[in-house]
Design a protein around this nucleic acid. Sequence first.
DNA 1: TAACCGTGGGC
DNA 2: TGCCCAAGGTT
Length: 323
Amino acid sequence: MLQQTQVATVIGYYQRFMQRFPTVAQLAESPIDDVLHHWTGLGYYARARNLHRAAKIIEHEYAGEMPATQEQLEALPGIGRSTAGAIRALAMGQHASILDGNVKRVLARFHGIHGYPGETRIAKELWRVAEAHTPKQHTAAYTQGIMDLGATLCVRRKPNCPNCPMLKRCEAERSGTSAQLPSPKPKKAKPVKASRFFIVSLPNKATLLEQRPMDGLWGGLWTPPERNPETTTEAFLDELSLTPEHLGEQINDQTFRHTFSHFHLDVEPIYLRLKQAPLHVADNAARWVNPTQIDAENEPLGLSAVAVKLLATQPHPQRALEL
DNA sequence: TAACCGTGGGC
DNA sequence: TGCCCAAGGTT
């Protein structure tokens, strides 16, 4: 959960997740929909799918016993070099190194390492000094200490240098470059994509959701049907084996922009209220769900933030058109 | 190597 | 408001 996600954001999710899945065995036995439901809103949903897969591997390949070597841990889905090092150093007391955002910042400043840390050459240099500093005794305390140094004093903006215990040995302090380190990511223009979401509801408020493929954006989550902007209402209804006579009301809500890490998505919401339910929905990856019950634990489905917004902010019905 | 993967905090 | 970034990893 903590990968690329701030601690304060994680805490609530962690507590609810651990209450629902207290052991590796219970996580491994649970349906993926329930796992993703508890991940809803956290983002990077591959982490949830990988954690679920890793629990199954630990249960079935390691007899429920957590593997303890760097190689075995890195072989688990979702665990890379840094997370494996964190598990070994913090949970197992082994001699192992980590390199998270905090440690990168502390080391880049302490050694005056210029260049974007995502660049291979810079990353190799950071890993080299990270391992060189890691003591063989008290590894867990050192590891927590250097992370906390980055989280409390050596912060990204306006670091508290006067109170830093490493001040006299800090290269960025000597050269006055702490404000420029670590070097920022080279910026690139974000492409803009557009898509149309059809929010189809029945008189009893049940709303149609589709499960997305397990890979790609919002993999495994459920959203209202997403189609390209050329898809007309008639074509979409025809896809559901519905005729325009089933349609009670259509509201084309205001397009809004959702910003991701690497692109923008212009969302066109189209609300369709049906007069009567279709006899069946052919696709088995589609379900009718009452939005008010999704948070009530009896509908354990993962929902993206955009899906939550589309379901929560339904425009008011137009009386004249309702019938 | 570089693109991809989400959401919220903070300025 | 728009931008950068966060206890990174996978393809």
